[in-house]
Design a protein around this nucleic acid. Structure first.
Lengths: 201, 201
DNA sequence: CCACCGTTACCGAGCGATCGGTAGGTCTTG
DNA sequence: CAAGACCTACCGATCGCTCGGTAACGGTGG
C-alpha cells in the first residue's frame, strides 16, 4: 500500500509492512490526543511496544511518519469504502458524514492536522492544499451528476462544491467540541435540504 | 480591558497594560506562524524586545498568555466593530467575512487554535466550546431577525445557525490554504444566496 | 539438511537543542 | 522607598535524532 516501502535504505517485507501500518494507526491516535507537534515519537512507539529508536527504524523521521499517516488516509479514500454507501451521490455524502460521526479519533486527527497545517511551513500544508483541490473536483462532479449544471438554488456545481466541503469541515469542529449534544449528521442533512428544498419529504 | 490585571501578585498600571497588549499582539503573530504548541515564549518576547523571563513578568505562564490572547479576541468581539458593518444582519455577516479576508494573521491564529483545541486537555478547548455556544445564540437571533421563525428554505434559525458558523469556519481553512485563488467572500455570498434564493438580484 | 551470511528488526546510550519555569538580583519610577 | 519592570543564571524535562551495536530471520550453496 505504501508507494515507497523503503526507509533508511532498508526495504520492508510483508511483515514489516504490517508493522508500519500498525505504527501509523498508533500515530493517528496520538495525533488525535496531542496534535502533530505535540505527538512524540516515544508516545507512538510505546503504543506499539517499541522504543523510540525502534520506531525510527520504520520511519526515519517524524515527518516520514506523518507522511505515512497521510498516505494511509489517501489509501482509505481511494479504496475500501465498504463502510459507507457510494459517496459520489448526495445520499452517499450523508452516509459519509454519519460514518464520520462514529470515528471520532480519525476525524479528530485530521481536524487537528488541518488546523496545524495553516501555520508556516507545516509538513502537511501541501497535502491539504492538494487534497482540497482534488476533493473539490470530485465534489463538483458529484453535484453535477446529481443536478446538472444548475442546482435547484441556481448555484453552479463549481460555486457549491467549496460550500459542501466547508460545511463538512466546519461541522466537525463544532461536533468535536460537543460530541454528545451536537448532531452532526442532522446538521449536514439540513444543509443538503438547503441545496435542494424540494427534496423535503 | 483585561479582567484580572494582575500577574504573579504584581499589579500592572496603565503602562504595564499597554505592554501586556503589545505582548498579546506579538503572541497572536507567533501563534499564526507556529501554532500555540509551537509558539515559544522566547519568540514572542523577542518580538517585543524582551527576554523570555521579562515576558514571564507580565504573563506568569504560557497558558496565561494564551488566556490573554483569547480575552483580547473577546474584547474585539464585544466592542469596536467600526471596521465592519453591524454583523447582526446578513449583510453585516458578509461584511465581516470580507473584513476577515483582509486580516489573514488573526484568522490564521484562531483557525490554528481551533484545530489544536480539539486535542485532549487543550487549554483553549473550553474557550471554543463556550464561544460556539454564544456565537450560535447570536446567530440564531440574527437569523430570526432577518427571516422570522422560518427561513425561505424552510429551515428554522436553530437549524441554520450551526451551518452558517460551519461555513465561516470551513471556508477559512480553504482560503488560508489558497489565499490568492480562493475567493472567500464570494463563496460566503453564494452560501447566503442558498439561504435565500429570492434575494438574488 | 545445514552452515553461512546478508538483510531485517530492533535496543541502549547519549547528544545537542529547546522548552517552560524559578530564584534572585538590579535599575527605574512614582 | 516600595513596587514595577525588567535581566542573568540556571534547572529539569523533553524533544528528535545518531551511533553502534545485537539478535532473529531468510534465502542460498554445498
Amino acid at each position: 500500500m505504501f508507494t515507497t516501502p523503503r526507509t533508511r535504505g532498508v526495504r520492508h517485507g510483508v511483515k514489516g509492512q504490517a508493522r508500519r501500518e500498525e505504527i501509523v494507526r498508533a500515530a493517528i491516535e496520538v495525533i488525535a490526543e496531542r496534535g502533530y507537534r505535540g505527538a512524540s515519537l516515544a508516545a507512538v512507539a510505546e503504543k506499539v511496544g517499541l522504543t523510540q529508536q525502534g520506531l525510527l527504524h520504520y520511519f526515519p523521521s517524524k515527518e516520514d511518519l506523518l507522511i505515512g499517516v497521510l498516505q494511509l488516509r489517501d489509501h482509505w479514500d481511494a479504496g475500501d469504502r465498504d463502510y459507507v454507501t457510494d459517496p459520489a451521490t448526495m445520499a452517499g455524502l450523508e452516509g459519509l458524514v454519519e460514518a464520520n460521526a462514529n470515528r471520532p479519533a480519525i476525524i479528530r486527527t485530521f481536524s487537528a492536522l488541518l488546523g496545524e497545517s495553516v501555520t508556516e511551513e507545516h509538513p502537511a500544508a501541501d497535502y491539504f492544499r492538494h487534497r482540497y483541490a482534488s476533493v473539490r473536483e470530485a465534489m463538483i462532479a458529484t453535484l453535477r451528476q446529481e443536478w446538472g449544471d444548475r442546482l435547484p438554488s441556481g448555484l453552479t456545481p463549481e460555486d457549491a462544491a467549496p460550500l459542501v466541503i466547508a460545511i463538512m469541515d466546519g461541522l466537525q469542529f463544532q461536533w468535536l467540541h460537543e460530541p454528545e449534544t451536537f448532531d452532526m449528521p442532522a446538521a449536514f442533512r439540513a444543509f443538503v435540504r438547503l441545496l435542494d428544498p424540494k427534496a423535503v419529504e
